[in-house]
Nucleic acid binder design. Structure first.
Lengths: 215, 215
DNA sequence: TCACATTGAGTGGTCAGACCACTTTGTAAA
DNA sequence: TTTACAAAGTGGTCTGACCACTCAATGTGA
């Protein structure tokens, strides 16, 4: 039918973009059904599906069996996820994963301790109290909170991924030193002492690294 | 057949990843034909194609009618095109991309300037000379070299991706200040002055950020 | 009237088979 | 040997058929 050198499914991707624009479909909104697209675009269903599957893997749309196809919130795109699984295949050293994760964590710490309105958040105080009183706070909770507050969704997403690939870097506490360092970290964050916070973080991760080596 | 909750085509994406790994297919190498995949994976051809089309849109594979399907290196432009038309309007997202990329860059700078054997590498001297004499060195060359030397392949690959995704943050030089900052950066690296290097980097990126806003 | 079960329409998920367009390769003819 | 052409292999597309799931309209019984 349309034997242009341009592949049909790419054409459909373009058409879909225009359709979304002209019909003003917003994130969360519903796209026309596959069968309707077949009629409107005059193409086969399998071709339509190739386009839709592509956009789904890109995280631009979401499909629910029995319901329909929906435009997603772009912020949650799983682009990084897919690419990571392809890229991580030939990364031999799990060490890179840890180091990269730590890079993201350190930067988040710097951002938070450098911003007066972030370091004054009540969450740090409450984490600190929990840390000192009981052991209900997990190591991961603290770092995660810092990442979230630093307000970079992409970094946060990557962090989750790296955490997953890096085989449970965080669990329960194993010794008193850890708690000491974490308290130092939190206090430095609250005081806006950037380098001090990073230093406490480094001391803490050194501890963990040693722990991993001993296993 | 396989009515798991996981969608079949995603399963195939995973299988393909394993297949590429186990058969050691390198960029430019040929993948099994669609019909062969149908037999090996025991699925319908349309399902196989959905998986392949997705990976193609991601730029991970390339198909040539009459020839076959090939693994690409991750340099493909389609990814950038598609995503930019769909997502790039989202300021917050693109900003996250830039910030995350800068996070990786800063950490690489810190690592290199903190390591005596890395900061003594002759490459810095030669980059510096080129920078001062002629304009043959691209901004990107310097940063890339630092990333490479810092020796974290995962970070490096993520950096490549973010760079593509963030639409050419680096190009030719636009003004003298840039060169000044880059010279400062390189010299600080060679001197092992970590914070000084980071400072020069920050000054430089501020320049670029302003440049972006003015467009 | 209300609560609950049933059913049917709509939708995505998958498969099989059929052509088409193109490339490569082998083979037969000049 | 060289050339021309046919065959095989590959991706591109379409059609039609089921299946699995969701949801709302419908019907039924209390």
């Amino acid at each position: 039918m349309d034997n242009q050198s341009t592949k049909m499914y790419l054409q459909i991707v373009r058409e879909l973009r225009l359709l979304i624009q002209s019909e003003n479909i917003k994130p969360g909104g519903k796209l026309p059904s596959e069968r309707e697209l077949v009629e409107r675009l005059k193409v086969g269903r399998s071709t339509v599906r190739e386009a839709l599957r592509s956009l789904e893997l890109l995280g631009l749309i979401e499909t629910k069996r029995g319901e329909g196809t929906f435009l997603t919130d772009y912020r949650n795109h799983k682009l990084v996820e897919i690419l990571s699984t392809f890229i991580l295949q030939d990364i031999k050293t799990i060490n890179d994963v840890h180091l990269t994760r730590q890079t993201l964590e350190k930067e988040a710490i710097r951002i938070v301790s450098a911003s007066p309105n972030l370091m004054d958040l009540p969450v740090w105080e409450s984490l600190l109290i929990k840390l000192e009183e009981d052991g209900t706070v997990q190591r991961e909770d603290i770092i995660r909170e810092i990442l979230i507050v630093s307000n970079n969704r992409l970094s946060l997403k990557m962090w989750f991924l790296l955490k997953q690939y890096g085989e449970e870097p965080y669990q329960g506490f194993t010794n008193e030193d850890e708690i000491t360092y974490l308290i130092q970290l939190l206090q430095a964050v609250m005081d806006g002492e950037i380098e001090q916070a990073v230093e406490a973080y480094n001391a803490w991760t050194n501890l963990l690294t040693k722990g991993r080596e001993n296993v």
